[in-house]
Design a protein around this nucleic acid. Sequence first.
DNA 1: ACCTGAACACCGTTCAAGT
DNA 2: ACCTGAACACCGTTCAAGT
Lengths: 196, 196
Amino acid sequence: MASKPAPQPTPAEEPAPEKGMRAHAKRNHEKLRVAANIVVAEQGADASLEEISRRAGLGSATLYRHYPTRLILLDIVFHDRVEALNAETAPLLTAADPGAALVTWVRTLAEHFTANLGLAKFLMLAEGAKELTSAHAQVRETGKKVLGRAQKAKAATADASIADLLDLVNSIVLANERDAARVRRLLDLAVGGIRR
Amino acid sequence: MASKPAPQPTPAEEPAPEKGMRAHAKRNHEKLRVAANIVVAEQGADASLEEISRRAGLGSATLYRHYPTRLILLDIVFHDRVEALNAETAPLLTAADPGAALVTWVRTLAEHFTANLGLAKFLMLAEGAKELTSAHAQVRETGKKVLGRAQKAKAATADASIADLLDLVNSIVLANERDAARVRRLLDLAVGGIRR
DNA sequence: ACCTGAACACCGTTCAAGT
DNA sequence: ACCTGAACACCGTTCAAGT
């Protein structure tokens, strides 16, 4: 058992060997991620970056080094949530009743959006920046198919595109993000229509 | 004609007589109002108060003296627009077709909201702060009656309240305030419903 | 009575200087 | 290679000091 394998004579003036630096940076990365999760949960997509670095115990410039843009940071924060949303809506693609599936799709989105403050705005920002990763693109793709199936079954108006539908959901969520019951009520109204 | 009615001996250390001061203050008031109109038209309800005072050529503290809260300032800025909206929607209360009147009411609101950046948010803020002046209250009252007539004629779902309807309109407008065509499209969808 | 510079407590973002 | 204090250009709001 060669327990001490001839350590490289690392100069004293260097704070740590390269491997140690990377490990240190990695720990900071992680600290920032954890802090971002907390602060974004509290403040949403517009969370103060200063506050995030403060909670991580680091300077704000370090946050910028690790996450050059807000969108990149939000992408890390919401990655798992987007995947969970996709997993939950996937079965709707083969559901027996396409009309009911569409309603469920809208309600599931609303649930995830109100349960995760900032998620709706993040998806909007990601679309606007055309930085769609596979995860976001899949939200839209699933929605498109669910809507298409409902339209083919004459269970949804042919007028609406997936862009319209996502925009409608996002608008209602953004304006009422902290009131899940209200979001659900307004979405049900919009899906059912006001006029008779 | 007693032209010089024994003027009070105003001390020299006072910069101007009371009447002059009031006129001066009134002019500043007006400068701020004009600047607010311009900047709010550009930036909406969240317009920078610093920018408004800068454009008025005054210190921001002076703005606070004249308009202690943002809501008070917005109330001045939007007063005429709210009255115009009320004037335009009033005939809908006696329109022949209550269902069509409801659709027109929604579209008229949308037009005014997109034509006047910040108006939708101002009305929301005013409701939240319970500082409804008669002008805002009338928007709601007219809407309530128009909706009620449509419901009585079985031309609108009995599920929707005026609060729901205003909230729906406001949500869609706020998220798409700079794209009037998009607002109209999404509102038509919501009024007509997605599901068949 | 009215106005204002300056202060205070915040932002987001960048960069020279440190290790 | 990585981190950070400090700077820069902004906010909204308040207040002592000026006239």
